[in-house]
Structure formats: structure tokens, C-alpha cells
Computed example of a mutant assay.
Amino acid sequence: MDELEFMRGRVYGADHDDAAPRRGRVYAELVGGPLDGLLLDVTDRPDDESRAGVALPTEIGRHGPGGRALYAPREADGRRFDWRGDIP
């Protein structure tokens, strides 16, 4: 199994040993970019914050450790967040 396949369906920010989705939580799928295939827990995020998108810290983006990957929800499907680029 390669790294991308290993990460797919895992929850962003969760401990590696316990990264499966949890019952009763709401997730959005991250599409494209360095976090492609991961799930983002959006259960407690206000709607306006989710619509604006998120900057998620990641060590595997263009800017390496300390960088962030930008994701924004699709207009037609708010359960999928598309990659918009990386920032330092």
C-alpha cells in the first residue's frame, strides 16, 4: 500500500493509531493537494467559517514544515473541500 492509499479515508489531525472517522461526527473530504483523501471534521465549525475555507497546517505541502494547505468547500457539494494552494 502506498502513502496516498494509506492516508485516504483517515481524519486530518487525528492520532495515527486512531484516525478512523467517528460515529456521530460530520466530515468533509479534502480533494487535491497534499492532504488529498483525508477527512476534515467539520462537526463543530460554524457555517460561515466553513464557507470561507480553511488553512490546514501540513508538513508535506509546497512550503514543507510550517506551511499550510488552503481548502475551500465546493459550491455544489459542501461535503468536499477543494485544494486552493499552499501558503508559508
Rank of each mutant, 00 (worst) to 15 (best):
L38G: 07
L40D: 10
D18W: 02
I87R: 13
D36A: 09
L56S: 04
D17T: 03
P34D: 13
F6G: 10
G24I: 14
E59H: 11
D36L: 10
G32H: 05
A55N: 09
D86C: 06
D15P: 14
G64F: 10
L56C: 02
V26Q: 14
H63P: 03
D77R: 06
L38V: 09
R79E: 11
R22T: 11
R22L: 15
G33I: 05
P88R: 06
A14V: 14
Y12L: 04
G13L: 04
G85L: 03
M7Y: 11
T43F: 11
M7A: 13
L38I: 06
D15I: 08
V26Y: 08
Y12R: 06
G24R: 11
L4V: 14
G66T: 06
G53L: 01
P65S: 00
R74K: 04
A19M: 08
V42I: 15
P73C: 04
D47S: 10
R68E: 07
G32D: 05
D41P: 15
G67H: 12
L38A: 04
P46A: 09
G9L: 11
L39C: 06
D47Q: 10
A52M: 01
Y27Q: 07
P88L: 06
A20Q: 08
L39W: 01
R23A: 02
G66R: 01
D48E: 15
D47W: 02
D41A: 01
P57R: 01
G78C: 12
G66S: 08
R51S: 03
M7T: 12
Y71H: 01
E75V: 11
D47N: 15
P73F: 08
G24P: 00
R74S: 12
G61N: 04
R25F: 02
A20Y: 09
R68G: 00
G66N: 00
G66L: 03
M1W: 14
